[in-house]
C-alpha cells in the first residue's frame, strides 16, 4: 500500500501536519493533523509502497514497543486513511 498523493509532513506550532504537494495539491486541498504515531506512519508511507507488516515493524521499532502493542493504533490509522481515500493498494 502507499499514499494516493504526495505529501509534505512538518511540525507547525507543535502540531504535525501534512499537506499535498505537486500536481496532487489540486486533487487534495487542505491540511491533515497528525498525532505522533500518525506522523511516523505518514512519513514511512511517503517513502513509497510498503506492506502492512513492514509498516507495523518500523512503527514498533521507532517507538520501542512490540508489534502486538503497536498493531491496534496502526490498524486504526490505516483504516482512517482508507476511509478518507488517501491510500491505494492492498494493506490489511
Amino acid at each position: 500500500m502507499k499514499l494516493r498523493y504526495n505529501f509534505v509532513v512538518r511540525n507547525v506550532a507543535g502540531q504535525a501536519v501534512a499537506i499535498a504537494v505537486g500536481a496532487d495539491s489540486e486533487q487534495f486541498k487542505g491540511m491533515i493533523k497528525l498525532n505522533s504515531s500518525g506522523e511516523m506512519i505518514f512519513k514511512i508511507l511517503s517513502t513509497g509502497d510498503i506492506t502492512f507488516d513492514a509498516l507495523l515493524a518500523q512503527v514498533a521499532d521507532h517507538f520501542g514497543i512490540s508489534e502486538e502493542t503497536a498493531r491496534p493504533s496502526v490498524t486504526a490509522f490505516i483504516d482512517q486513511l482508507r476511509q478518507n481515500e488517501l491510500l491505494e493498494g492492498q494493506g490489511i
Binding site: V8, I19, V21, G22, A23, S25
Partner: peptide, 9 residues
C-alpha cells in the same frame, strides 16, 4: 501554499 514540495515545506 505552493505546489512545489520544497517551497511548500
Amino acid at each position: 501554499l505552493p505546489s512545489d514540495p520544497a517551497a511548500a515545506e
